[in-house]
């Protein structure tokens, strides 16, 4: 189990570390030089974006890389150009409701698949995987027509409701966590007269908090980053736009320079980075659980 904060491969290096040959030092320098270049490569795009966000209108038209003068007011101007706070609110509403709905509907389903033995459970699990792998565009036309007939397009409902009816990826991920809980705990709980529901929230939920956190984070992030869903369902009504949707049309709609576009980009990125900094362990734990062994 790797986390981002843990040092790498201590077991492997322990033996070699004791006595360092000159060759090891050369190797160390080489590896770290490559790694440093790699890190810079990954970080550089964001650095340029932030630098451009601080440039003046005029300078943003040039090929300068470093701001001649700093214009933090660009970030305020973004809010003048578009109702970013409203978009932020919509994104938050979408993500929070979807995450809550996912947890409510998917935890029991994942529990049933992970811990309850019943006929057809394998088939259901295969169905979950098939649904997880389905490109969303395949079923877009009928689902869109369905919501249109209910006159609910232009609202966040079509985006949020499906999460209250089980999310395939989350069920899959949660199941991966749930199967790791030793059976003894459940047996003990059953001795105490717990029914399945009580076992679910007395035993399983407290024991798999990191898993629940990971599944929640992924759903939150997926919905926060979603573009296709909002484009389809709330594109028609600007009052319901999410941040991603607004960002995509920001430059075209407001005829602005790169500096403001990049400032808006930074504003969309910041919540994600903050979320990551607070929860990086859960992220990494979740990801490694999706990388399944056959």
């Amino acid at each position: 189990m790797a986390t981002l904060t843990a040092t790498a491969a201590p077991t492997r290096s322990a033996a070699l570390r004791k006595k360092r040959h000159p060759r090891d030092i050369v190797g160390w320098v080489a590896v770290h030089a490559v790694a440093l270049a790699m890190g810079i490569g990954f970080a550089l795009p964001i650095v340029f974006v932030v630098l451009t966000a601080f440039m003046s209108d005029q300078q943003a038209l040039t090929s300068d890389l470093w701001p001649r003068s700093w214009h933090p007011e660009n970030f305020l101007e973004v809010f003048d150009k578009a109702p970013m706070l409203e978009f932020f609110g919509n994104s938050l509403l979408y993500s929070v409701l979807a995450t809550a709905g996912m947890l409510l509907s998917s935890i029991p389903a994942a529990y049933a698949l992970a811990r309850l033995r019943f006929r057809g459970s394998n088939f259901i699990f295969m169905l979950v995987i098939a649904a997880m792998m389905l490109p969303p565009q395949v079923v877009a036309v009928p689902i869109y027509s369905m919501w249109a007939n209910l006159h609910l397009t232009g609202t966040l409902w079509p985006l949020v409701v499906p999460y209250f009816l089980g999310d395939a990826f989350s069920i899959f991920l949660l199941r991966q966590f749930f199967v790791t809980v030793p059976q003894d705990y459940f047996d003990a709980a059953r001795m105490d007269g717990c029914n399945e529901f009580q076992m679910l929230y007395r035993v399983l939920v407290p024991m798999t908090k990191p898993g629940l956190a990971a599944a929640g984070l992924f759903t939150f992030l997926y919905t926060w980053n979603d573009y296709f869903g909002p484009l389809l369902y709330v594109g028609e009504k600007q009052d319901s736009w999410t941040l991603s949707l607004a960002l995509a049309s920001f430059r075209g709609m407001h005829q602005v320079q790169w500096n403001l576009t990049m400032a808006a980009t930074v504003l969309v990125l910041v919540p994600v980075i903050v979320l990551f900094l607070f929860a990086q362990k859960s992220f990494v734990k979740g990801i490694t659980f999706t990388g399944v062994k056959g």
Binding site: I46, L221, N225, S244, L245, L247, V268, V272, I273, L275
Partner: peptide, 11 residues
């Protein structure tokens, strides 16, 4: 290395 994968695709 991991952080960019979290960035919203539009951004």
């Amino acid at each position: 290395c991991y952080l960019p994968s979290l960035a919203p695709p539009v951004a």
